[in-house]
Design a protein around this nucleic acid. Structure first.
Lengths: 349, 349
DNA sequence: GTGAAAGCGCTAACAA
DNA sequence: TTGTTAGCGCTTTCAC
């Protein structure tokens, strides 16, 4: 009938009492910002451990300047998987930066103004914008006009005043191409993405650059257009494999199109990777779901979100200290070449 | 050099002043719990609108009994996509239930005790357990022993004392089977999932039941085992299509295996859906990424998370009111049959 | 280096 | 029905 009394979590007051110091000293020791004698420091740390003390985030936030709210804004074109990764990274980092993360979804077809209204109602000091939101100049400007810091995730271009994290698409494509060449491939087909995406152009550039650096001549017929969809990959692969001198390897600009290429190869009874090597890009779940699993490039989405939070944190700090103008930043993260089962040395003639 | 003064968000005090009432009346009007005169109510609502007031969650949480923390615990076997959906649902519902959501990842291979320690350090009053965590009896019990409410997402079985949300797998499979029959199919193959999953068994049961209800005889050779992986789907489909009387439709127990079946059909130059109908289950991103896109069953993961939060909220309320024993609950949500391009009426002989 | 006081925004309890 | 008082847990002054 009557429930066991809820054990209230320990407060900083109890920690202070147990350590034989005042609340303030305990607070300082815990936050490690101010000077505290080694003795007090240790006593407090011990007490924290004994009591299993965890600071109350709400109280911290309430006191004012300490915590700020930042929003992860997403549109309905952000896939759950992408969002999940983003959330995992951001949620992990936010508390350490003393930031509260809120998640906001913007209505499909909403005007920039509406979105900005929605965001400012949430009292956020900064927003994280995944693609394609980060490439929407009007939105970014409107946000900045309200004095809200903006950080873009893998934006397509550079926007002045916008913080950004991303990977080096060109370099990644260069590396993947080198991997194929090192395997022994010389005739490599390329299925490009939507030409409007600069990321796609950068990947193609990396591909071209690597071939050029290795002195390998590129047959322009081996570059076929796609639009990132599975369907377009089907068509592109058909085109590539119908050539009188088909390539021994295909570099698809994303995993969906690579998966489509594998399907086409199977239809034609061409063995992957025995007869042809097929690589993707992005390392979406699809890459490891199919068989053979795709060799691909992993974009560290989770890390990007982590960095985005970090950038925001740093931005606020420098802002508080009134240090000159804002410290803008654009960080590039390392991608990873994930080698699975879809590549091999080229078949002998 | 000097920044424009930050406009502080309005507080309830300002709302009260503008509405010409006391803070408490404003508070009551805003929360709508207690009795407030229609006049005050309106005045407050107007002031809230004018000022763009948004309650400060931290302050609310701080005051005590109002907000509780609940954790979404996930293991590394939870895919990002699944987690993303869960998070979207939970994050949307939590504030309305006055719950603070925290996200905790449990280390791979951790003991139940370690996980419980981690969770209780976070001072949470309840946890949401996605599969396969919700089927880990030892963990559930340990959590409950510490007086933490547990709600499982689509658990495999029933655990006494555990709240749960889920869908009716048997019923969904029944409906999908009926859809195939209505299309005109009479020879339907079934690729089952891992036999250890009861969900898989329930889907098979739904399949069998529907066939029986329609008086359609089932050739046992049309039921072939898979293990939910793409690879196993490949083998199963090969087996099915090598029969002397192959089925005119295949019901795969998940999308990965259905995608594999499509690949096999293509290899054999069997047109989907012209020559054979293939359906999946779960509506993962893969289902709409491939071509033809899969007709499948969507599990409302986001809604499940929403309901899970709701269940937790209701649980706490009834607990506060000391109403008899706990009100346990298990809610079943509606699945959805998503019809895409992978089904059609059977080809004529 | 440390401590005492004040108060962040809000609501539970009590009065009026 | 409404207002007053107190205090949630913590950190910011500003003294010592």
């Amino acid at each position: 009938m009557q429930k066991a009394a809820k054990k209230k979590p320990p407060t900083i007051r109890e920690v202070a009492a147990r350590a034989g110091v005042s609340m303030m000293t305990a607070s300082r020791a815990i936050n490690g910002k101010a000077l505290v004698s080694a003795k007090s420091q240790q006593a407090v740390e011990q007490a924290v451990k004994d009591l299993g003390y965890v600071p109350n985030a709400s109280a911290r936030a309430l006191v004012g300047s300490a915590d700020r709210r930042v929003a992860l804004l997403h549109s309905n074109s952000t896939t759950s998987a992408y969002l999940g990764e983003l959330l995992l990274g951001a949620l992990g980092e936010a508390p350490q930066r003393h930031l509260h993360l809120v998640v906001e979804q913007c209505a499909p077809g909403a005007f920039a103004k509406e979105i900005v209204d929605q965001v400012s109602k949430a009292h956020v000091a900064g927003v994280i914008l995944p693609p394609p939101l980060c490439d929407w100049a009007e939105l970014v400007e409107a946000l900045q006009a309200r004095d809200i810091a903006v950080v873009g995730i893998a934006p397509d271009g550079d926007v002045p005043g916008m913080l950004a994290v991303g990977t080096d698409d060109r370099h990644a494509a260069y590396d993947l191409t080198r991997h194929l060449i090192d395997l022994g491939h010389r005739q490599i087909g390329f299925i490009s993405g939507n030409i409007r995406h600069r990321a796609s152009a950068r990947r193609l550039q990396g591909f071209r650059d690597c071939l050029a650096d290795r002195g390998i001549k590129l047959d322009e017929r081996w570059i076929v257009p796609g639009d990132f969809s599975y369907r377009s990959g089907l068509d592109a692969a058909e085109q590539l494999l119908s050539l009188d001198t088909p390539p021994s390897a295909i570099f698809a600009c994303n995993d969906d199109m690579a998966a489509a290429a594998i399907t086409v190869a199977h239809q034609r009874r061409i063995n992957v990777p025995g007869d042809i090597t097929i690589c993707g890009f992005d390392d979406t779940p699809l890459a490891s779901a199919i068989w053979p699993a795709l060799t691909t490039i992993r974009q560290p989405i989770r890390d990007m979100a982590r960095e985005a939070i970090g950038l925001l944190g740093a931005h606020f700090s420098s802002q508080d200290e009134g240090a000159g103008e804002e410290t803008l930043g654009r960080v590039k993260l390392d991608y990873q070449l994930i080698r699975r089962q879809s590549d091999a040395v080229p078949a002998r003639h």
